[in-house]
Amino acid sequence: MADNLNGWLWAALQTLLFIGGAPLLAGWIKRLKCHLQNRAAPSILQPYRDLAKLFAKDLVLAHDASWIFRVTPYVVFGAMLLAAAVVPLVAVPLPTAAIADVIVLVGFFALARFFQALAGMDIGTAFGGMGASREMTVASLAEPAMLMAIFTLTMTASTTNLSVAIQYILNAGLVLRPSFLFALLSLAMVAVAETGRIPIDNPATHLELTMLHEATVLEYSARHLALIDWAGMVKLMIYAVLISNIFLPWGIARHLTLPGLALGTVAVAAKLALLAVLLALWETVLAKMRLFRVPQFLGFAFVLSLLGILTHVILESAL
């Protein structure tokens, strides 16, 4: 029982680390991008300052805003909190991973997105509706690709529990699986689309007509905006952790011992920092796509994940 309680306590601590660390990752990416684009870079702690400032401000609501608009930031943040709680960050044994497997994780993202889109339509401006429509379209194309990529993992490890799956990959040792390569590429492309990064969406855009995600949060202010922005950072971090801990799990703590945990923290920080460099490079090199190119982008991701499944069935089922 004490051991059990220990595990849950650790899970709560790790979730706090997840939520608390997400702005740091966002700040790091922003800083890298600035350097790459020859701009003066803000401090890596800038996202924390932005959030603190937003939390302190007074709320402004549109006249027509209903209760859905006011509830949405909490639901979105809550869904991301739950999602963060089930993804192993520093250590593999995570009792909370049993609450929700990876399909439920996708469900949490869907819940947040549904509320976000409703909030966009709540005010009754064209921008909100436009953002909602585009966001739901992109999501509906991304979800099958994401699920296929996950399928490759779950068919190999024969579980959808993230903790168990990572354990399996660690136990299997360094096996080169072509299917995982396809799944990795596909999941990375989906992550770019789902977190609203270039080339699907531009997180820094100021032009309403080109907005996808930003258009649905246009009307938010103060603590509501802070929660939604923070949830966005957490979502980016979740995808980054998923990619690094599923496909390169080495370094993650397998038991709850102090040296293991310290090593795990350093390892995941290093992996995320590297991934951020890749993302910053990618965003600097590419330009935003037209909206109706997005289906081709995500279609490609789907084909990659399909190839992943097929290679798994053909080549690796004997393993």
């Binding site: 739901m136 999501a139 699920l147 399928f151």
Partner: peptide, 13 residues
């Protein structure tokens, strides 16, 4: 199953 995911996402839309 992937098409089921597509269906679900479109139903959400």
């Amino acid at each position: 199953a992937a098409l089921l995911a597509l269906t679900t996402a479109l139903a959400a839309a």
